[in-house]
Amino acid sequence: LLRPLAVVNPYAEQLAFADSRTRTRRDHEKYLTLIDSITLLYQYQRDIKTIDRDGQVIEYVEATLDDIALANQLAHDILGHSLDELGHSLDELQPPTRQLLQHLHTLVANRIKAENLRQNEVRFTRRDIREVTGLSNSQVSIHLDRLVELEYIYAHHGKNGQRYVYELVFDGELTNEQPQLIGLIDVEQLKKGRQLRL
């Protein structure tokens, strides 16, 4: 019943996807295909548009923000994992390491709100962590290194011999033990950006 229409995703360049690891790079194409499939499925609820390419008329439908929101929801179940590609879950984190992750989640959320940043723009240092948590330098080292190893946190090399700064990669729900696919863009951010342009 579906026509073999082309699908155009006008939001493709704005979509975020964690691609720092081999598995997530492979999953990226699956994620984009999931959006295309949803759009194609709803083709009869969409305007069919045309474009002329070298004298050939191509019919297509455009992906919507609702399609992306549904794809994000489905991606957690289809492509999701228990918080990282190594097969670990929050239950496998030692309580102090998990508690540090919670502190970092709060630290980043506060910076996002106060400075109007996206999560991937927030950077913090070991000193920031010590100030927020009250942990000693050795305690921070142990648990932060564990989070970096498990790829919840990404360590950015400092320039010209400067200290490391860190980025919180994990953007799932700390209380959710269901499979989660981290790094997907918040569709609400796309909607706000679209409203600003209008």
Rank of each mutant, 00 (worst) to 15 (best):
K191R: 12
L90G: 05
Q94H: 09
V169Y: 02
V148F: 13
L40K: 10
E92I: 03
L100W: 03
I68L: 05
I182R: 09
L135G: 07
E13M: 04
E151T: 07
L190M: 03
L83A: 10
Q99G: 01
N110A: 08
L34N: 05
E188R: 06
R21G: 01
E167F: 07
H143N: 15
Q102H: 06
E29Y: 03
V57T: 06
L144S: 09
A71T: 06
T175K: 06
A114E: 10
I78Y: 15
I35P: 05
A75N: 08
H81T: 11
T22H: 03
A12R: 14
V148H: 11
L1R: 01
P10W: 14
G80M: 13
A75C: 09
L107Y: 14
A69R: 07
E13Y: 06
G55I: 04
R3T: 02
D54H: 03
E85T: 08
H28R: 10
P179H: 13
G134E: 13
H81P: 00
E92Q: 12
E131F: 12
R21W: 01
Q189E: 02
E121F: 00
T97M: 08
L86Y: 15
V8T: 06
D54F: 10
D145R: 07
L32R: 03
Y42L: 06
Y164H: 15
N137H: 15
T24E: 04
R26F: 06
S141M: 15
R46A: 04
I38G: 07
K191G: 00
S82H: 13
N137K: 15
R123F: 07
S138K: 12
R197S: 09
Q180D: 05
L181A: 02
E92N: 09
E177C: 05
R126I: 08
S82F: 10
Y152F: 15
R123H: 06
H28S: 03
R163M: 14
E167Y: 06
R26D: 03
R163V: 14
K192G: 00
E121T: 00
L117C: 02
L2D: 08
D145E: 15
A6E: 15
S136W: 10
H81K: 11
K191P: 00
Q73R: 14
L135D: 08
E188A: 02
N176R: 07
Q99W: 03
G55N: 02
Y166K: 10
G55C: 03
E149T: 08
V122W: 02
H76S: 06
T64K: 05
I129F: 08
